[in-house]
Structures are given as C-alpha cells and as structure tokens.
Amino acid sequence: MKNDLEELKNDFLKLVKEVGDRAQLEELKNEFLGRKGKMKGLMKDMASLANEERKVIGAFANEIKESIESVFGEHEERFAAEEESTRAEREWVDISEPGRFEGAGHLHPVSQAIGEITDIFARVGFTAVRAPEIDWDYYAFESLNLPKDHPARDDWETFFVDAPEGKKGKIVLTPHTSNSQVRTMETQEPPIRMINIGRCYRRQIDITHVPMFHQFEGLMIDKGVSVTHLKGVLDYFAKTYFGPDRRTRLRPHHFRFTEPSFEVDISCGACGGEEHENCRVCKAGWLELGGAGMVHPNVIKAGGLDPDVYSGFAFGWGVERTLMMRSGIKIGDIRTLYKNDLRFVKQF
C-alpha cells in the first residue's frame, strides 16, 4: 500500500514536469487528486486494512497528498506568474476612448449659484425666506421710501399688472428683491437675519439686460447694527464666494431705501486689481458687485419697528452678475441664460 502511494507520487512528479499549460495542470490534478482520481482509488482500498495499519497508512497517504498538492501549487504559481507577465498585452484597454455615463443631468448655472449663495449666508446666520415676485406697489416701492413720482415707479421702468388698484396700490412685477424687507419685518420679531433670493423684472432687454433676472437680498435688523457689520458680512461673502485673496471696498452711492448707501466693489479677479491698465474686465482694478446700505429709518418704520431702537443693513445684488464675475464665464449675450439652448445648459 505504501509502495503504491510512493509510486503514485513519483508518477505525478514525472508527469507534472511535462505539463505545458494551466489546463493540463488542472487535468493532472484531477487525475490524481480529483473525486474520481487515483488518490481516491487508493484510499478506497484502505478501508480493507486493519485499524492500526490504516492509521499509519492514512497518515502516510496524507503526507503524499500534501506533497503532491504543494508541487501542484508551485506549478500553479509558475503559470500564474507567466500569465501576469503577459496580461497587459492581452488585456489592453484604449484609455483614450471616451467614458460612458448615460443620463448625465445638469443644473442650470443660476440654480447652482443660488445654492452656493444660500449656503454661505446660512453660515453667518442668515435664513432663506421667500417673497412674492408679483407684489403690491407698497412693498416694492412705497414702504421702501420711494416717493410716488420716483422714476422706478414709472411705466417705462417697471412692469405693472393689468388689474385694479388695491389697498396697497398697484400690482407690480418686483424690480428688485427688496420687497422682502418690509414683508419680513412685518412678520418677524428682531433680531432678523434673512436672505431672499428671487426673480425680478425690469423693462429692459438687450445683450447686457434681460427683463427677468435674479437678485439676492440680505437684511439684518437688530439693536446696534452698524456699517462695520455690513462690511464684515460682505467681506465674509466676498472672500468665501470669490476667494480669500479678493478685496472689497464700499463706494458711496445712492439708493432711496438705504442711508448711507454704497456700491460694493470687489478687486478684479482677472488682473488682480493691480495691473489694471490694460485689463478688459474691470474699471481701474475694481468690479461692481452691487448695492448695499444701512436700512433707511423710514423703511424700518414701515416695517413696524422703531428706528431709534433698531438699525440694520441691507444689500441686493444680481445673481447672474455675481455668477459671471466669479467663474469668468464670459456670456457675450446675457439673454443666452434664458434661451434654453441645451448646448448652453449642458456645459454646467
């Protein structure tokens, strides 16, 4: 019996040297160690042996089996290594072929900007609110310290709805998001920190104007709010949205609903604000972001609050403009934004 096992092993060692590939090796393994293989056959014969002898032979048989398996393993590794060495040749992929990803969706760039702006102001405690974009004259103009005969209230600047006047005047398509100011003060006890991002409408359409656009309006009302706080919040936004190396400046300006009023400028991203002599993007190193100011006492009063107790700041900027100023997206004709040529949207 022992001899039979030795012979089996020697047979295997002889045959395994002649094996040329992995399949043959597999076949050989099966022949010796498989379910119906030679080893199994010998083991069957073991059943007829006496207990003592079977134990000894059994142990020997295991040894033989293990050594066959080990030789087999060595050969298998050899074949595997050979296979690896040629894998790159056999399994070459053209990495220059375009990847395939069906059903890529796209958010409109304005949605993307609105999302980012909302997030930035949320971090300094400004809550997103919503205000009607078709609103009473009262909220769009009257309560914002714009007198009845102010040009913004003329037919050629603002859209009016063809409807009878109500208690709060005519119905207008809001030309700015500032109608949210008094609306918020009417329903919200100070402290107020709100941001309203919405659609606005003005009667202008050409390559730099669209009759429908978006603004984001910020309002903070509390005791002791000052210009320094406005500077703080605007700096925070500008550095977060545009990058830490950008600087802002407040340039005195005029708006009816703020006093003092400013135009907020940001240092030019294209020329860095320094080498502006030949810069095509900026005016003397600066770009206009939009308007801001300290809420006019009359507006605070219209909101039902006492301007001797509360003060606040507000700002209202164009989303489209802000978006284009950061990314350096040059949209030659701003109307492209709302033309919905899919070749445009799919770039974002």
Partner: peptide
C-alpha cells in the same frame, strides 16, 4: 472702518 462679523443672538427664523 473695520470689518466686523455681527455677533449677538441669532434670528429665530
């Protein structure tokens, strides 16, 4: 003027 981020109570909104 300095730039100061406003402190104080957050708005209850």
């Amino acid at each position: 003027l300095p730039s100061i981020l406003p402190e104080g109570a957050l708005a209850n909104m």
